[in-house]
């Protein structure tokens, strides 16, 4: 693969199991520094599962197991002595449905820094403002930071969640279909945000929307499903990484026929 640039995270033969059932098999993939990497593929292909491995959110799922290596800052994140809490303080996450805490906008954004023990009012004020500006939300809410985060519109809520996650100054932001619950205008706003305000962050985004991947990302990884009939008419399915390339290349001249079929809308 003719891919250049500095790598922030490197996945090396990553397989994920849920209760000993294979979910994703043998993913090897670099995540480029300060670039946007999109994960696409049909539902059930394991793209979200891989994303959630990157900051060990899968640890919260009972019976989840990860094989292989995920190298971040020269360290395997799944090594025994690595603390998942510390990992998540460096690799932040934005979820599918906007999930602000039932608290004020200010408290939402200040939550992360407070967890770390930042308590000085002026420091917190500064972080809140910087983060809200970073998520292009400051101008809309500056007058009323005491308002509940739940009172905002869906798109604003999602930008609040982005502000909340950049408040702890992560290296990487993982986005799990961040626009799937939003209308087209709000979606556009988030895409613009990723391109402009968040351009210094390494971003990994899972999306169902191929136009979004095409528009917003620098690199794209395409996942698909493999099946195998088991005894008793049960079918075993797991996800695999089919192709990883620069977005333009993947969409215009995919190497794999399966990729071509998928982006042409022939399945999925």
């Amino acid at each position: 693969m003719a891919i250049t640039g500095e790598t922030t995270i490197h996945l090396n033969n990553v397989s994920v199991y849920y209760s000993n059932k294979l979910a994703v098999k043998d993913v090897t993939l670099p995540i480029r520094k300060q670039k946007i990497t999109a994960f696409i593929g049909p539902s059930g292909c394991g793209k979200s599962t891989v994303l959630r491995c990157l900051n060990r959110m899968n640890d919260l799922v009972q019976g989840a197991r990860v094989d292989g290596e995920i190298i971040y800052r020269d360290q395997n994140l799944y090594a025994r002595n690595v603390d998942p809490v510390e990992v998540r303080r460096r690799i932040g996450m934005v979820f599918q449905k906007p999930n602000p805490f039932p608290k004020s906008i200010y408290d939402n954004v200040a939550y992360g820094p407070r967890l770390l023990g930042v308590t000085r009012k002026n420091q917190l004020d500064e972080i809140v403002e910087r983060s809200l500006r970073g998520a292009a939300l400051w101008d809309e809410v500056a007058g009323d930071l005491k308002k509940s985060g739940l009172a905002l519109s869906g798109g604003q809520q999602q930008r609040l969640c982005i502000a909340r996650s950049i408040a702890v100054e992560p290296d990487v932001i993982l986005m799990d279909e961040p626009c799937s619950a939003l209308d087209p205008i709000a979606t556009q706003r988030i895409e613009q945000l990723m391109r402009e305000e968040l351009k210094d962050y390494t971003i990994v985004i899972v999306t169902h929307n191929m136009q979004q991947a095409q528009r917003a990302s620098d690199y794209t990884a395409f996942y698909s499903i493999r099946k195998e009939a088991e005894s008793g008419g049960v079918e075993r399915r797991w996800g695999v990484l089919v192709e990883f390339a620069e977005t333009e290349k993947l969409f215009n001249s995919p190497e794999s026929g399966e990729t071509a079929d998928y982006i042409a809308g022939r399945f999925g």
Binding site: R88, G92, V94, F95, F101, P102, S165
Partner: peptide, 27 residues
């Protein structure tokens, strides 16, 4: 209490007790 609130908190690097004490219990 919706799971998404816990997820959001863990995603920001909160420990289990921080998540429980600051998010789950008040809700």
């Amino acid at each position: 209490v919706p799971y998404s609130i816990r997820e959001a908190s863990y995603g920001l690097g909160a420990t289990k007790w921080q998540t429980t004490w600051r998010q789950v219990l008040p809700a």
